[in-house]
């Protein structure tokens, strides 16, 4: 599916605050169909809060969030639930259901929403787990028996269960070894190309930004400073962005990305 200018999610004038602490003020952001949008920002700048506001887990204190052209806040509960089925969310620490094994974790939305029989759903679930790069014997494992990398993959498989149109990933490569993280980036791009979903990717991983993201949104000072392709973002005249992309880590990640492209 080709990347288009069509906007699937439109955030306008978003305000979020906890007590007197203002996290977002007048924040604007667009997510386009089929793109991987990397969202970066210092710790505590409200990247996860933004994600939670968009998927409807946190009620914003102001502004509007339009999803597929509809305002999520104004919809009735059942319409909202139908709309939310078109999202896939992968939480920072996986949030797998610990009382179910992996294939049951992935099969749950298939049984509940798609009305599949248990056997069909579990068969599909095993394929999704394999797609996410897990070995077949992992299907019957309990979430608390998994390593960090396997948990991330299982969480991705669950987020992909209903073939979502927008995938929200909260730091998917944090805590993975470099090989695992690179494989995750590749997996994400393959699946995006194959399935054509949009990705909202909160990350601190510079390599992911350089290899996988089509656009990067920088959150600082309570709003989105810039949201554009990497070259434009890098060239933006802002202290934080300069430190972020032209610091020692940013430089080496950019060089690594350059080398891979040359090869």
């Amino acid at each position: 599916m080709s990347r288009s200018e069509e906007t699937v999610i439109e955030v306008r004038g978003l305000v979020n605050r906890f007590g007197s602490h203002v996290v977002h003020e007048d924040l604007d952001l667009d997510i386009r169909r089929g793109e991987i949008l990397g969202v970066v920002g210092g710790s505590g700048t409200g990247k996860s809060v933004l994600l939670r506001s968009i998927v409807g887990l946190k009620h914003p204190d102001g502004g509007s969030i339009r999803v597929f052209g509809q305002d999520l806040q104004r919809l009735a509960a059942d319409q909202r639930s139908r709309l939310e089925r078109r999202f896939g969310v992968m939480f920072q620490r996986g949030a797998l259901f610990t009382s179910l094994n992996l294939q049951e974790n992935v099969a749950l939305p298939l049984i509940e929403h798609a009305g599949l029989s248990r056997a069909d759903a579990e068969h599909l679930a095993r394929v999704k787990l394999a797609l996410a790069g897990l070995p077949p014997e992992a299907a019957l494992m309990a979430p608390d028996a998994l390593s960090g990398g396997m948990t991330k993959r299982a969480a991705l498989a669950r987020a992909l269960a209903l073939d979502p149109e927008v995938l929200f990933l909260d730091e998917p490569t944090a805590g993975l070894d470099p090989i695992g993280a690179a494989a995750f980036d590749q997996l994400l791009m393959t699946l995006r190309d194959a399935l054509g979903f949009s990705v909202f990717l909160v990350t601190h991983d510079l390599d992911t930004l350089y290899t996988a993201c089509d656009r990067v949104a920088v959150i600082a000072r309570k709003r989105v400073l810039v949201a554009d392709d990497l070259a434009t973002v890098e060239a933006t005249d802002d202290d934080w962005i300069r430190d972020y992309f032209h610091g020692p880590r940013g430089r080496s990640a950019s060089q690594a990305a350059q080398r891979t492209e040359d090869r």
Binding site: A130, L131, P135, T190, L191, A194, G196
Partner: peptide, 16 residues
């Protein structure tokens, strides 16, 4: 893209 999808799924099912 469709080739990619079918091959990705086939690859996953090949090993499982």
């Amino acid at each position: 893209e469709r080739h990619a999808l079918l091959m990705a799924v086939a690859g996953a099912m090949h090993h499982s």
